[in-house]
């Protein structure tokens, strides 16, 4: 379990990192927290020529929390998000999700940018990014660009990032008004990648669902937004029957993978259960989150 040979560049600035990546061409890889990349190196499943360590780059670790907007620098560690009081108040689903990433030691090292870029369909951050209608800002020698969450994920562990692009910032929003959120996941052990994870956001006006977002992990080669169910709920009541119908729609519309932790069929079944529970939890939370 020793990595194949590679060169190592400890970039001191974003420009240095971008230059090193440009030099390396397809053979370069960003090293952030190393919690996904290093195991892949050790198993020789990843064999980059050059590792560009971005940990020393200043300015990639800001964490801005407004009432409805969240801005997270790529180098912010999972643990910092998990423990942030502002996040807990304004984005409780984000705190809940961050707390379910691996174990404390992993959360102390792993970064939000790394997780978003790694694109594990069972991971928390990519799913959150969808639920927050988020976007990432990336830098390359050609300048900066912003990629919407819906355009970022191309397949299993695959993004639309170019080899020389570095994620700088991750941003997301929650709708205004009376909202409720929840994040639930089913994992064989605490800290495992989810068999199925669900992020739910409900905004309500009177008794009617004004807006709904549902994102799921573990049910496809990328994290998915359950648009069909969202539409089903929007404009109607958030009663048990409506929620159950939405959950059923999610299950019907998905095409999950199967593995030893759960077959496609099982994932479909438990996704329905989790969606139902997540929506109920979000509904029940409405009113407890004070938003101006």
């Amino acid at each position: 379990m020793k990595p194949a040979p590679f060169d190592y560049v400890a970039a001191r600035s974003l420009d240095e990192a971008l230059a090193a990546l440009a030099d390396a061409g397809e053979g370069g890889k960003v090293l952030a927290g190393g919690q996904s990349l290093v195991p892949l190196l050790a198993l020789r499943l990843a064999r980059p020529d050059v590792l560009v360590d971005v940990n020393q780059i200043a300015g990639l670790d800001r964490l801005v929390v407004d009432d409805h907007r969240l801005v997270i620098g790529a180098l912010v560690r999972h643990r910092a998000v998990e423990l942030d009081e502002r996040v807990r108040r304004a984005f409780p689903l984000v705190s809940a999700a961050a707390a379910q990433i691996g174990h404390v030691a992993i959360r102390n090292r792993g970064t939000v940018g790394g997780s978003v870029a790694h694109a594990d369909p069972a991971a928390e951050w990519p799913t959150l990014l969808l639920a927050l209608d988020g976007e990432v800002e990336v830098a390359s020698p050609r300048g900066r660009r912003v990629i919407g969450a819906g355009d970022l994920y191309a397949g299993y562990l695959t993004t639309t990032l170019e080899a020389d692009e570095v994620v700088c910032e991750v941003r997301g929003t929650l709708p205004e008004g009376r909202i409720g959120t929840s994040f639930l996941e089913l994992a064989r052990r605490e800290g495992d990648f989810a068999i199925v994870g669900v992020a739910a956001v409900l905004a309500r006006e009177g008794d009617v669902v004004r807006h709904c977002r549902l994102a799921l992990s573990g049910v496809g080669s990328t994290p998915v937004r359950a648009r069909g169910a969202e539409e089903l709920l929007a404009g109607g009541p958030a009663d048990d029957a409506a929620i159950a119908a939405a959950a059923r729609t999610v299950a019907d519309e998905m095409d999950p993978p199967g593995d030893i932790h759960g077959s496609a069929d099982y994932r479909r079944k438990v996704a329905e259960v989790l969606v139902r529970r997540a929506l109920c939890a979000a509904r029940d939370e409405i009113g407890t989150v004070v938003a101006q």
């Binding site: 195991p39 174990h103 052990r189 605490e190 800290g191 932790h261």
Partner: peptide, 13 residues
Amino acid sequence: GTYMDYLLPTTTE
């Protein structure tokens, strides 16, 4: 082949 798939109980379980 790895501890992602071979699930040892940990202190949390």
